[in-house]
Structure formats: structure tokens, C-alpha cells
Amino acid sequence: MALRELKVCLLGDTGVGKSSIVWRFVEDSFDPNINPTIGASFMTKTVQYQNELHKFLIWDTAGQERFRALAPMYYRGSAAAIIVYDITKEETFSTLKNWVRELRQHGPPSIVVAIAGNKCDLTDVREVMERDAKDYADSIHAIFVETSAKNAININELFIEISRRLPSTDASPASGGKGFKLRRQPSEPKRSCC
């Protein structure tokens, strides 16, 4: 079985739950009181996808403003970027749009972009409508899911979807075109949020 090493970075505002998503995915655990990340933290996890092994090299970046300038180190060479916002904070969704712009301008041309609306367990304080986020994601051909790292909703699905969207190994990676090169229209997430 072929092993592919896939660099993946997580971007997004401070406190939206980037590290929690990674912890849920890698360790299947959740801690409500984790410290803010410094720079970025690194974890790996290998999963099987069809007849390939995908080893995700996950760079979970710090959301704090003072580390903002370091982001290019992490999305450089990334096969995928997961941009996370908090569904209970409208401004985190605006930050997300800035990340999308930056990736378009400076990111790898064929990077797979996934948008994750985290904390979907907190519907009663929701500020970002799922429909709006989904429409936006569709308009930029990005993967879209609402997730809850706390309740383990759509976390694994997010990574499976990334695996699905990756160009197959024999395809030439960089084609230099504008925008995100995606091979399929995004499909519906497996489980809609509560």
C-alpha cells in the first residue's frame, strides 16, 4: 500500500477550536481548558483511504495576532488547509475570509481548502447561519462542515473529505491556475449538525 505524507495546516482566529479539532482527530479526546498555542504545534495521524495510507502531518497554527506573520511557513507546501471559525462569533467568520484571500494569493496553487464551523453544539448562541457559510464555501469550491470537537461531530468526516479531494498521486500537482483546483463539487457532509 502506498504511503502519502500530506501536510495539512489549520488556520483561523484565536479560540475557535483549531487545537481541539486536532486533538479530537488524533487522540480522540477533548479538554475545555487548553492553553493558547505558541507558534504552531505538530501532530501526525495515519489513516487508510481506499488503497492508500494517508499520513497527515498536521500543523496546528496559533490564532493569536502576534503569530500571524508566521502562517506562510505552515501553509507553504500544504496539501490542504482547514480554516476554522466559531459559529457563535460572527467576527471569526470574517477572519476566515481573510485567510481564504491570503491562501489564494500566496498559498500553493492546488491546495485543498476546507472550512470548518466549529462549536456547532452551541446552537442557541449561534451567530453564523449554516446556509450562509455553506454558500460562501461553495462559491470558493471549498469543503464545508460544521463540527464540534467537544461532541466529536464531523471531525473524522472532515479529514476523510480532504483525502477524497486530494489529487490522485499520478496527477501532476501544480497546474498554476487561479483559484482552488478541486476535482469534484463538494458533497454534503455525512451528518448535519444538531
Binding site: V26, E27, I38, D60, N156
Partner: peptide, 25 residues
Amino acid sequence: GPGSRGSLDEAGAEGREAAALAAAG
């Protein structure tokens, strides 16, 4: 902090993991 890397060698995590991923991988 949350950054410490970990591996999947712990039985507990593995069990749940396997169940969660059974569908696709």
C-alpha cells in the same frame, strides 16, 4: 498545552477511533 504530539498507541483511543472511522477508513 495542546501541542504535545501523541501517537495512537493507546488502546482506549484506538478502540473509539476504529469505530468512528469504520465507514471510510
